[in-house]
Design a protein around this nucleic acid. Structure first.
Length: 235
DNA sequence: CGAGTTTGACCCGCGC
DNA sequence: GCGCGGGTCAAACTCG
């Protein structure tokens, strides 16, 4: 075997290793996001189990964290406003923190005067396509008191920290329903693709690279929440 | 002109 | 006590 051939193989292996490392990092972030959502879900489940009917102003004392997938090319802080949740936020500060070159933005809930809820939003240092939002405190008002604001499917905001929201609607994703402005039955087709896919790794990778899937999922969430908000009773 | 945003200054807690 | 870093304040600025 010649030296050139060895060099070629080495460079190929190095390239593959690099790709695997990148993929590993991406999957780790996804796992982290899923874990955080699981914790919130679990806490909500435990609360439901313990209390039965939820009081209207359920206490959510602990801070919660939500990961949001965004366009990494958009460096503007307007991007952070995409982390919408049915409340109105007023920005009161911005700070560059030590371990993250991206500035952290500070928001206060401005739906009701005196509402103590605060939100911190910052890009993830490991992957700028992720934005992390942290919520502190509990709202002292109803989400529906926001004038002129609605969660319409045309203005997709994703995800919603509704699991920490005492007024949250129950979210049930209908992955097979038609969603306007997206390929009909797109998510249903995605589920079918899974069965025909060679392995999970390829399947997950194809999904993470598929912007249509992201849009369809966001639309499904928005659609579900809109449907939930249209009902006066909140489960 | 009022509401929201920006940004530098200030405050405060924490580790050394 | 001092320095550092995160969080908040508030005046200036922007925008509708």
């Amino acid at each position: 075997m010649s030296t050139n051939t060895l060099d070629l193989i080495t460079s190929k292996v190095e390239a593959e290793l690099e790709n695997l490392q990148k993929e590993n990092q991406r999957l780790r972030l996804l796992l982290e996001a899923m874990s955080s959502k699981y914790r919130v879900l679990h806490e909500a489940y435990v609360q439901e189990s313990n209390k039965g009917a939820r009081p209207q102003f359920a206490a959510v004392a602990k801070a919660s964290h939500v990961f949001v997938k965004t366009d990494p090319r958009d460096k503007s802080l307007l991007d952070f406003q995409m982390v919408k949740d049915g409340f109105q936020w007023r920005k009161y500060g911005q700070k560059v923190t030590k371990n993250n070159p991206s500035p952290r933005a500070y928001f206060k809930c401005s739906v009701a005067p005196g509402c103590p809820v605060k939100k911190k939003v910052q890009r993830c240092v490991e992957d700028e396509s992720f934005v992390m939002a942290s919520y502190e405190g509990q709202h002292n008002h109803d989400v529906y008191s926001t004038p002129g604001q609605s969660l319409s499917s045309s203005a997709i905001s994703f995800p919603y920290p509704v699991l920490d929201n005492p007024f949250r609607p129950t979210i049930t994703l209908d992955l097979t329903s038609n969603i306007e402005n997206t390929t009909p039955n797109y998510l249903g087709n995605v589920m079918e693709d899974y069965h025909t896919s060679n392995n999970i790794k390829d399947y997950v990778e194809s999904l993470t690279k598929d912007s249509n899937f992201t849009m369809a999922l966001a639309a499904a969430v928005a659609s579900s929440i809109t449907a939930g908000l249209s009902k006066p009773s909140i489960s």
